[in-house]
C-alpha cells in the first residue's frame, strides 16, 4: 500500500522520454519536477505564477481532474504564443490523492 501523503507523477519530455517520480501531496507539480531534477521545467520565478517557464500540457484524460487555469495563471499563459487549450503552469497544480498517476507533457521549449 502506498502512503497517503505520496502520489506518483509521470513527466513526458518532447522527445518522448518518460520519468515517473513520487511526489508529496500538497506540493506543486513544478516543485516535484524540480526537486527530482526533471529537465524542461525552468521555474525561474520559483512558483509565484509570474514567469510561465513551468509550462506543461495536460493529456485529455486528466484535464477534468486537474482543472482549469485561474485569472493570474491565464494572463501569464497568454504571454506564450505557443499556448495550447490544455496548457497549464505546473506551479499552479497542487498534487492531491485524486491526481495519483498524473501524466503531464513537457513542451519543446519554455518561453
Amino acid at each position: 500500500m502506498r502512503g497517503h501523503n505520496v502520489a506518483n507523477v509521470t513527466f513526458i519530455q518532447f522527445s518522448g522520454e518518460e520519468t515517473t517520480v513520487d511526489g508529496t501531496i500538497g506540493d506543486s507539480v513544478m516543485k516535484i519536477a524540480t526537486d527530482n531534477l526533471v529537465p524542461g521545467i525552468d521555474a525561474d520565478c520559483g512558483g509565484e505564477c509570474s514567469c510561465a517557464t513551468c509550462h506543461v500540457l495536460i493529456p485529455e484524460v486528466w484535464l477534468e481532474k486537474v482543472g482549469i487555469a485561474r485569472e493570474q495563471e491565464n494572463s501569464m499563459l497568454d504571454l506564450n504564443p505557443d499556448r495550447q487549450d490544455n496548457s497549464r503552469l505546473s506551479c499552479q497544480i497542487e498534487l492531491t490523492n485524486d491526481l495519483d498517476g498524473l501524466v503531464v507533457n513537457i513542451p519543446e521549449f519554455q518561453y
Binding site: D42, D44, C45, G46, E48, S50, C51, A52, S75, L79
Partner: peptide, 20 residues
C-alpha cells in the same frame, strides 16, 4: 544552483519578451 532566479527580466505580465 538556480542561475535563472534573478530579476533582470522582471516578472509578471511585463516580463521581458526577448529573454530567450
Amino acid at each position: 544552483a538556480k542561475p535563472r532566479q534573478h530579476l533582470s527580466f522582471g516578472f509578471g505580465i511585463h516580463r521581458c519578451m526577448g529573454n530567450r
